[in-house]
Nucleic acid binder design. Structure first.
Lengths: 218, 218
DNA sequence: AATTAAATTTAAGTATACTTAAATATTTTT
DNA sequence: AAAAATATTTAAGTATACTTAAATTTAATT
């Protein structure tokens, strides 16, 4: 299957499973930087290959085969991120950028070698779970977004769900890192802002950030 | 530049520099598994991009820009081979197969990381020189093919120039490995066969093999 | 040197993955 | 509920990288 197809099913997977958006061609088009028309065309094509269900004007839904393909690509992406992060001195943004390319040219054979070398890790450096060889995510995720965290409680950062350089730069600058401890000192629910404390520093985060930073209770 | 273009200039480079063949579209077509017509089309296209010189019915010649592109791809290929060989338990054939895909999706940035991690090696596991960041091969190569080796002399294997699984299987089985010592016990020049001794074993090699096994005097 | 064989080139056509522009349907707003 | 805004789809067209078949040129053989 082509890079275009792999990226298409991956985008649907991420949109559906991760972002819980409603997955119409337009959303995918925006994510992939292609026209809506191209996304509709591709959706029809993939429906004919039984990778997704397509009905005019309705949301796209991956079939079992489509989900499996998406998870296979996601697995390779996250394994590369974990591998590059461990071996080289690369930032979260850099590992994402490289993984985005390598994921499509990685055989299952090589992916398994990388996984074994790393001791079959369950999470990548963003805290995202790494599917196993069969495309299964066995780790249960009880983490919640910072926007839903409770005032006064302590948490451990479990996921940084983004691919934006500026966000990662901000995180690096402020010690927002997978595994680090924070305290939610105030929830400004009306303004959708969250105040947290990390290493004696107090930071006020807006909705854009609290929606993509996930945490577990400490 | 596309994968097709990168593979095209790489094929010319290997044919020209390594195999010393006369590089007409047909040779390249055979290497790449495409039709002669496709190779002619591509040659014209790359000429318009100043990557090579094309004149009807004449041999193709890479320009400086074309050579640089080829060496950049070759660098990434050989770095991946060295890297995968060192880190994972993979055969010469397997590292070649994976490098063939990864080479096109590897940024210069990542190539430099891999190179630095390995201590900027000068050779890959086949004994092929790894071009530096500027596309230069600075190591002088005085090695000769086994077909030109002298009877009675001792040699060290310096290059195994192939991408054929069967050849590598044969090499692995018989201890023919980069860096290993051999003795040329007999040259059957009429039949273009060479007899060598390696680890007390005596092997008779035909022309196909003696042309792609390179050695240095011990 | 003429004939034959082989390689190269041209021409016409295909699949993939896009594009823009126009038509149509859906959603949102009033 | 109608109008306006937004999204989706259809239609037509493009670039890339191929294909096969026929024409042409070069190289090899006799």
């Amino acid at each position: 299957m082509s890079v275009a197809i792999e990226n298409f099913v991956k985008a649907i997977y991420n949109n559906n499973i991760q972002d819980h958006h409603d997955t119409k061609p337009g959303n995918i088009a925006k994510k992939l930087g292609i026209s809506n028309a191209a996304a509709t065309d591709m959706a029809k094509k993939l429906a004919s290959k039984d990778l997704l269900k397509y009905e005019k004007y309705q949301a796209l839904q991956l079939t079992e085969a489509g989900t499996k393909m998406a998870l296979n690509v996601v697995r390779k992406h996250r394994l590369w991120e974990a591998f590059l992060f461990k071996l080289f001195d690369m930032s979260l943004h850099e590992i994402h950028r490289e993984a985005e390319l390598l994921e499509h040219e990685t055989s299952d054979f090589l992916a398994n070698k990388i996984s074994a070398y790393l001791g079959n890790p369950k999470f990548d450096p963003h805290g995202d779970p790494i599917p196993n060889e069969n495309g299964e995510i066995t780790t249960e995720d009880h983490s919640i977004s910072l926007s839903n965290a409770e005032e006064g409680k302590s948490y451990i950062i479990s996921r940084l769900m983004s691919d934006d350089k500026e966000f990662f730069d901000f995180c690096a600058l402020n010690g927002l890192k997978y595994g680090n401890a924070i305290v939610v000192t105030k929830q400004f629910s009306k303004n959708k802002m969250t105040q947290i404390t990390i290493n004696t520093n107090t930071i006020l985060l807006n909705e854009d950030f609290t929606n993509i930073i996930y945490v577990n209770e400490a």
